[in-house]
Simulated assay, not measured.
Amino acid sequence: MTPTRRHLLLAACAAPLAGLLGCTEAGSATVLAPVEIDPATTCDLDGMLLADYPGPKAQIHYVGSAPPVFCCDTREMFATLLAPEQVKPVRAVFVQDMAKADWEQPRGHWFDARAGFYVGGSKRRGSMGPTYASFAVEADARTFAAQYGGKVLRFAEVRVDMADLTGGTTQDAKM
């Protein structure tokens, strides 16, 4: 049978579909969504109930682990991710956009932490004292810094020495 124009058109349309059907789970790129905290969600580092404390929270999704690791605040997230002993591959990291979330009881408004802007050194305190206020939009971070003080940084600008956790327990009156 000689291929007709119709056969060639069908083959051309089917080729991209065949490539999609051939994807394996290991090769497919699934979009990972953040998990919302609830009254029972705890910090993986110290067991604190996240809902009981102010300031931005974070969640780290590791390769090969279904539930995320929750952090009390963004300083803890940076300390975890930047620690020299951190070798687990990370799938995604989410923080809360504090231009939209209530500082005292933050819920929702999660975004990709690596794309964010952070204000360090402000007067606002998180669950463990000083923290990095997280923002999805640079203008919101600058507005926050103008009101509460601090310096605006990109994710990659925060260094391990800037995420020291040693003072947190001495500053937390609720622990």
Score class of each variant (00 low, 15 high):
His109Leu: 04
Asp52Arg: 13
Val95Pro: 03
Ala92Gly: 07
Leu45Tyr: 10
Asp52Ile: 03
Gly64Met: 04
Val63Pro: 07
Gln86Cys: 06
Arg114Cys: 07
Pro89Asp: 13
Ala115Trp: 04
Ile37Arg: 01
Gln86Ser: 09
His61Tyr: 14
Ala79Met: 06
Val69Arg: 14
Gln105Ser: 14
Val90Thr: 13
Tyr118Gly: 01
Pro84Phe: 07
Tyr53Asp: 14
Phe78Leu: 03
Arg75Tyr: 01
Phe111Pro: 05
Val63His: 12
Cys43Met: 04
Cys71Leu: 05
Thr80Tyr: 13
Phe111Met: 01
Met48Ile: 12
Ala99Glu: 11
Asp112Thr: 14
Met48Thr: 12
Pro54Gln: 07
Gln59Met: 02
Asp102Glu: 13
Pro67Arg: 03
Met77Glu: 00
Gly120His: 10
Lys88Asn: 11
Ala51Lys: 06
Val87Phe: 11
Met48His: 14
Ala66Asn: 11
Val69Gly: 06
Ala113Trp: 09
His109Met: 11
Cys43His: 05
Ala99His: 15
Trp110Phe: 06
Ala40Lys: 09
Tyr118Ala: 01
Lys100Leu: 15
Ala66Cys: 05
Leu49Val: 10
Met48Ser: 14
Phe111Gly: 03
Asp52Phe: 02
Met77Gln: 12
Ala58Glu: 02
Val93Phe: 09
Pro68Val: 03
Trp103Leu: 07
His109Ser: 10
Pro54Gly: 09
Arg91Met: 09
Thr80Glu: 14
Val90Pro: 04
Lys88Ser: 08
Arg91His: 08
Tyr62Gly: 02
Asp97Gly: 08
Asp97Phe: 00
Cys43Ser: 12
Thr42Gln: 15
Pro56Phe: 01
Val87Thr: 13
Gly64Ala: 06
Leu82Trp: 09
Arg114Ile: 01
His61Lys: 11
Pro68Cys: 04
Ala113Gly: 05
Arg107Met: 11
Asp44Gly: 15
His61Ile: 09
Arg91Lys: 14
Phe70Cys: 08
Asp44Met: 06
Met98Arg: 12
Val63Ala: 13
Pro39His: 05
Glu36Asp: 14
Gly116Ala: 09
Val90Asp: 08
Arg114Lys: 15
Ala113Ile: 01
Ala115Met: 14
Leu81Tyr: 02
Gly116Met: 05
Gly116His: 04
Asp97Ala: 04
Leu50Ser: 03
Tyr53Arg: 08
Ile60Lys: 01
His109Ala: 10
Arg75Ser: 07
Val87Leu: 09
His61Thr: 06
Gly108Tyr: 10
Gln105Trp: 11
Asp38His: 06
Thr80Trp: 13
Pro54Ser: 08
Pro39Thr: 06
Leu49Gly: 05
Val95Ala: 01
Gly47Glu: 10
Thr41Arg: 00
Ala66Ser: 10
Phe70Asn: 00
Ser65Lys: 12
Thr42Arg: 13
Glu85Asp: 15
Met77Val: 02
Gln105Cys: 10
Lys88Asp: 08
Glu36Ala: 12
Lys88Gln: 15
Val119His: 09
Ala83Ile: 04
Glu104Ile: 07
Cys71His: 03
Phe117Cys: 04
Ala58Trp: 00
Ala79Phe: 04
